[in-house]
Design a protein around this nucleic acid. Structure first.
Length: 574
DNA sequence: GCCGTTTTCGGCCCGACTGTTTTCAGTCG
């Protein structure tokens, strides 16, 4: 049986193959769109298929439903296999080289027998590529450069790394005298966990000096485009950045357009057409050309023209945000300033870099009412996990610190207790009962099969003393895949047992993923935005968690640590 | 391949930029 994301990959592969065979572009788009739908779907695919409701999803017609059903059931699709057999597998990688699209790859394949990157490199180095019609010296060089850097180019960058590059550029753009408005757009503005490239948008009537400043920015390794209204550069680490300069009256249309997502824009354009307006990054145009189309001096006005309230960028993923906006049901999203404390933080007792006292001082500086300390338990030997005696000692230290009234922040005693292989915990119930809160996490046996991993975690969810489950899937962005766990089942168990699921705000983790939170919250699962800080600076990771919570449609009411200390203690039953 | 108050065919976003060629095709977003 094949899972959603694997089916999506097959559909994407079909789309790429069809590009190479010169299929109808709209047919290709339908397959790609189908893949995106599957990836963004949190409903159980098996249930949708069984109930016949898969076909109700816009974008999935008879043919795709049929193919998805076959893939899920058989794990293979004859249509896909046949297509695959007709095209060299290596061409998929060739397609990834910047500047190479289906037409050029097809030419390389049919005219120079290029079937993989090795052969591509060879024919570039021999000069054969530059001889081809439609190719030339520059293209040939660019391909070689692309082969050399393909790993760096292909990689998506974690949000905070992209943000660190974007912020000074944005500040620099705003400081230029020719610039009246500047924003960053794209997936950075939508707060995706990873960012493919940076999109800057500037309003100005004098683009040239702005473009010149941008392409000369320190750290730019390569200028891939330098035009009147658009320039593109690439930085040392492979991250690409685009800058577009538009007249002020187009700025908010362009900002909306380049913020995306693509799916959101498609839905917005569709809505505009229903109101007699054609919508693009340039603005509205009246379809009948008789009436004057509305302009916009803010993003709010873009939405208002379509009868909608402003939709926060985090929600613009084409997952029903427009329907919700129309119905007046957009969530009032949680904000960083709503947080009144944080759980799940470490000290020097286990693998943290700062002492209990230092962590408390740092939490106080954030203005928080409480700070939850949860060092590792004894089985996490590699992290200096605490045994019962050291935990006892830490309990006393925390009690003393609180009693001293040195800080106004109340330190809550906890443990990040290991979930053992069979789902039992690293401490016995009587030990756990003495703590203010308990986070239970998996730190080993990442490769257990789905059934065993799920059962193990659910057993912890059901444990009387476990208040929250830490980093549910264990993923490290760009580094380690999530472990194989049936998240929907864990969510159901968490709802049934009043167990919180953590939103681990470490920017490598951002776990649980934003795609699941809306469903979890609808089922009644409470979230806790936990920095998992291992030093005083990492307490600020909570901000990353807030962004992901917003992406997951969460309101302050659905997040435990927006509550006051008395409310939190009451919820914890202490 | 999908969709439909323009409904079973015919449209599906389209403009900027580059590199090639010399007026435009291909790529990208």
């Amino acid at each position: 049986m094949m899972e959603k994301n694997d089916i999506a990959s097959v559909l994407d592969e079909i789309a790429t193959f069809m590009e190479l065979t010169g299929e109808n572009p709209f047919k290709i788009r339908a397959y790609s769109a189908g893949a995106r739908i599957l990836e963004n779907m949190t409903e159980d695919l098996g249930e949708l298929i069984d109930s016949g409701k898969l076909a109700d999803i816009p974008g999935l017609g008879e043919a795709l439903v049929d193919k998805i059903t076959t893939l899920r059931r058989d794990g293979v699709l004859p249509f896909h296999q046949k297509l695959k057999a007709s095209i060299p597998a290596g061409l998929l990688e060739v397609m990834q080289i910047p500047g190479l699209g289906p037409k050029k790859v097809r030419a390389l394949w049919t005219l120079l027998a290029v079937e993989d990157l090795a052969k591509l490199k060879e024919v570039c180095e021999s000069g054969a590529v530059a001889e081809l019609k439609g190719f030339g010296e520059k293209t040939q060089e660019k391909i070689l450069e692309g082969i050399k850097n393909r790993i760096a180019y292909g990689k998506r960058h974690r949000w905070y790394e992209a943000a660190a590059i974007a912020e000074p550029i944005l500040a620099g753009l705003r400081a230029l005298p020719q610039v009246s408005l500047a924003e960053s757009a794209g997936s950075l503005r939508r707060a995706r966990e990873t960012v493919g490239d940076l999109d800057f948008l500037v309003a100005s009537s004098e683009p040239k000096p702005i473009m010149d400043w941008f392409v000369a920015y320190p750290g730019v390794k390569e200028v891939t485009a330098h035009g009147e209204t658009k320039s593109s550069v690439r930085f040392e680490n492979g991250l690409q950045a685009d800058l577009r300069v538009v007249p002020a009256e187009q700025f908010y249309f362009a900002l909306h357009h380049f913020t995306g997502s693509k799916e959101h824009n498609v839905a917005m354009r569709h809505r505009a057409l229903g109101r007699g307006l054609s919508m693009s990054e340039w603005g509205f145009k009246s379809v009948d050309e008789k009436s004057v189309a509305p302009g916009a001096t803010s993003e709010e006005e873009v939405f208002r023209a379509l009868g909608l309230p402003w939709i926060p960028p985090e929600l613009r993923e084409g997952n029903g945000e427009i329907d919700a906006a129309e119905a007046g049901k957009l969530p009032k999203l949680v904000q960083f300033s709503d947080l009144r404390g944080v759980f799940h933080n470490h000290t020097t007792e286990s693998d943290g870099d700062h002492t209990l006292d230092q962590m408390a001082a740092a939490a106080e500086a954030h203005g928080w009412e409480y700070l939850g300390i949860s060092d590792h338990s004894k089985s996490s030997f590699q992290a200096g996990g605490l045994d019962e005696a050291r935990l006892e000692k830490q309990l006393e230290d925390i009690a003393k610190l609180n009693a001293s009234k040195k800080y106004r922040v109340r330190v809550l005693s906890g443990s990040e207790v290991d979930i053992l292989k069979d789902g039992t915990l690293d401490f016995t119930d009587d030990v756990l009962a003495r703590l203010d809160f308990v986070v239970a996490s998996v730190h080993n046996l990442f490769t257990l099969d789905r059934e065993a991993q799920t059962a193990r975690i659910i057993k912890a969810v059901e444990s009387e003393h476990v208040d929250m489950i830490g980093h549910l899937t264990g993923r490290l962005l760009n580094k380690r895949e999530p472990y194989d766990v049936d998240i929907a089942k864990v969510i159901d168990a968490a709802a049934a047992n009043d167990t919180i699921i953590e939103l681990n705000a470490n920017p490598w983790r951002l776990d649980l993923d934003w795609r699941w939170w809306r469903r979890a919250a609808e089922k009644g699962v409470l979230c806790s935005i936990n920095p998992d800080a291992h030093d005083i600076d990492q307490l600020a990771f909570a901000a990353h968690g807030v962004r992901i919570a917003r992406k997951g449609w969460l309101t302050p009411e659905q997040v435990l640590n927006t509550r006051s200390l008395p409310e939190v203690l009451s919820w914890l039953g202490r």
